[in-house]
Amino acid sequence: MILLYTNEKLVRGFMEGREPCVKYIYREYFPMVRSIVSARNGNLEDAEDIFHDGLIIVHNRLKNNKFTLNSTLKTYLYSVCKNLWKRRLERKYRLLYAADTYISETDICDTEESQEEESSEKFRLYKKNFAQMPEFCRELLTHYILKTPLEEIARIMNYKDAEYVKARKYYCKNLLRKKILNDPECKQFMNYE
């Protein structure tokens, strides 16, 4: 079924996380993102990642009232995704060919935008690892993220009590951390030291 949305309705639906709106955005705007990515040697997976991260960034910016959307969602998403892909390519290039190059303080001074972009990428990678967790862990942590009370989680998941839920939660979070730490893709964000 093809639904036609006005820009306002689409933005509203997107902000509410409505699935039909997200699907519509995908069908209408993903080819555009794909062309941005493939124009610079990106593949389908890169395009999907950029699309995901771009949408998260747009959502966060709109939610935090960092800007008012004067143009259409499509135009804005286009510019966000284009910048995102450009920065990602630059970083990739730096990692591959210029690892030893001296980077001055001004170069590494992160702008708010780049921090946002990095956080959206982190978010996606962490979520990727999250998706690979055992089912009970995913369910439990999802309840935890959705701020469901522990007693309620115990009831839903048929656990003994809230204490047991807590113990399982620590176990699952520990498992997730270990997975992330062992993920080579996440290594770039693990340079805390």
Binding site: K23, F51, L55, I56, H59, F123
Partner: peptide
């Protein structure tokens, strides 16, 4: 932020 988490789930599922 549960909202972002759910949105991300929806996007991933759609993709």
């Amino acid at each position: 932020d549960p909202e972002v988490f759910l949105l991300s789930e929806t996007i991933r599922k759609t993709i």
